[in-house]
Design a protein around this nucleic acid. Structure first.
Lengths: 219, 219, 219, 219
DNA sequence: GATGAATGAGGTTTCATTCAT
DNA sequence: GATGAATGAAACCTCATTCAT
């Protein structure tokens, strides 16, 4: 997805070390955001010297992007598996929703990282990020829907690319709503329920209902 | 929505100056983000000294929040007008979608500011922001849907709060997709079309279709 | 004592206003110290504009010194009255000690101001302050003791100037110990008693004993 | 006395550098006072970058307190040695006075630092300072006098804690009078003699006389 | 006489990055 | 390969003082 942003020295490091650096980096970037995260602290927490960190990554940004790569590829893998199954679209949709909920808990930091990218303001970088992160996945989403359309499983009057886009918007919003502070509070405000007591299952069922009819209804 | 975050001196400034400061501030925060925006530069661009800036706002954060207030209240006004009309839900939905598109162009910086808030990581502030920004609007969204439900205009098996939430998610995603760099690129990737050539009308019609059936279909 | 440091305009102000300005100034300088006191805030609290403040005083320092003048002259008056009485030295000493205790409560801020001056580091100003503040008083102290010496009321082997100096040191230390935070804590540490429960009378009696024998003993 | 206020990096610095930083710091704080002392200048004079200064000390205050620690511990050591000897109280008193004079010359800056603390206005910090600086020493003073009392070397009608306090007041005042500008001028005013020509020996002898009779006389 | 808006130099603190060892 | 001491630009914020009205 991204071209590599780490130096050769990083490849030569032990897996354990690579793992540790990315784990710590993801945690820091996720909890503080890019600007406020401190690369010196990341190095210390990862148990390496700042000098070595710069042997591994040329800049703070390169470390960040390498963290993103790791985080995004894990999120994508889970999604890809569902998209490439033979299930009907509606079944896939349900799986996607449920997986989204699970990932939001298990991989909360990855989701937060994704949210961070989402407000990138340098348009060059924004494009680079979007291509790297959304490129493959979007194709799969579109393909699923195109296939369903061909099979007659869904309404025929839709633009599959846009419907894929709307579907992804709903799933992404849901993901953020389970993970990122602002979005979480927003969800609480809409439901009127404290997030701790929130019935995840109720949300899943309603969203599935919403999506199902959007995709199948035809006047 | 927010309690005021400017000092009395700011109230006494000329309207022209108040306008200028907020305009410049919004532009800077929208284009660089909170962390990277520089108060000294904002002051200079607004044509006042840094000292005076601090006579108007106690901290960078206060200036930021005052900018937010301005931006959000303008966005909200447009939305509120639609939500409080007597139109049927579907008509409202169409108006909301169209207005969203327009605002995204006219008030792009406000939308970017909103996007900035959306990745707030301090959970106290996130809550404060969410309450201030989403509080009133969410109520109106929910009311619209509850009313439509009572009138039998929409499917009866929905949870109105959650459906309102999904609807807002779709609209917010759309808004970002027209304004924020990352989201814009993502939209291009999904549609395969350069944003300049993108048929806004096609998007509007498809989204309306998506929403309409989600809201009215019932097995 | 000091030459005047206020401008003519200040003389023309109403007594009430003069009073208010000095009162507020003394309070601010006493509680925050010279550097941290803010002349804009003093003006505001005194109910005048900062512009007018600068019509009254050329600089922050001039305001400060005028506050000092006011504070010191009040403290001095109380002391002078005692020193110029016809009492025997020991009686005067007792009165001085008791008055010191009273002033420390009634005029705590003046004492704090005096303490502030005491750490002046510009040697020119230190000299100016010392001359203005200690000049007259020291003469009276010395005279008292010289007189007592002449009358044979006290030991004949003393240097009256130095004994006056030691006496003043004890009284000044006591004054600070009742008023200034650091000195107050130091007193608590020595006595092992919380300042609120501290028997002022016990201190007075012991100090008088200390001084009395220092002045009258002769081998 | 104080808990350490420097970071670990400071411990790792060479002794020469540590020495230099504290020396320069003490000089600056002593000559300008806490508020007016400038960390950037201290760093420059110490031959290190401001960034490194902040690797050594978290804040200006921490640097200041570390300077205090250094200064106070040196002053204390000299005093402690005398207080813990087997000499009679009067002998100790003489040694204390003479040492006070010497320290005032050799360690003038430490004394100035002490004077600076003495006007601390934040009552929390004042307490912390007082405990750290006066805590141990005061105990030793009191113990000396209690012992002398038990041996019958001094008058029996005294409160040992208060007499210790008065003694310390006299010594502290003397110390300031030899070092701090204001107090020095005050001494000149009392004696009528220029400080350069002032007979230190005369002062010592008179003060010893003063103290001796205060402690031994009994009606 | 009186106002208070306006200035801007200057101080503290942060942190990405370098480089000698 | 690995260290971590060292740098210094740059950001936020304060406040004594000025001056037009």
């Amino acid at each position: 997805m991204f071209e590599k942003r780490y130096k050769e020295a990083f490849e030569r490091a032990t897996d354990e070390r690579k793992e540790k650096i990315l784990e710590v980096g993801i945690k820091e970037f996720a909890s503080k955001g890019y600007e406020k995260a401190n690369i010196n602290i990341i190095a210390k927490k990862a148990g390496i010297s700042i000098g070595l960190m710069y042997k591994y990554f040329s800049t703070k940004e390169d470390l960040f992007i390498t963290c993103i790569q790791r985080g995004m590829s894990i999120l994508d893998d889970a999604i890809d598996e569902i998209l490439q199954s033979d299930d009907k679209l509606i079944v896939k949709a349900e799986k996607l929703i449920r997986t989204t909920c699970q990932l939001s808990q298990r991989d909360a930091n990855y989701v937060k990282l994704y949210n961070e990218i989402t407000s990138e303001r340098d348009s060059e970088k924004a494009m680079e990020f979007a291509k790297a992160i959304e490129g493959e996945t979007s194709k799969k989403y579109v393909k699923c829907i195109t296939d369903a359309l061909a099979k007659g499983d869904v309404r025929q009057d839709m633009d599959p690319r846009l419907f894929a886009f709307f579907l992804d918007n709903l799933l992404t919003s849901l993901q953020f709503s389970f993970t990122c502070d602002y979005y979480r509070n927003r969800l609480e405000i809409y439901t009127g329920v404290n997030v701790a007591e929130l019935s995840e299952d109720q949300i899943v069922r309603q969203l599935l209902k919403f999506i199902e009819s959007a995709f199948t209804f035809e006047k």
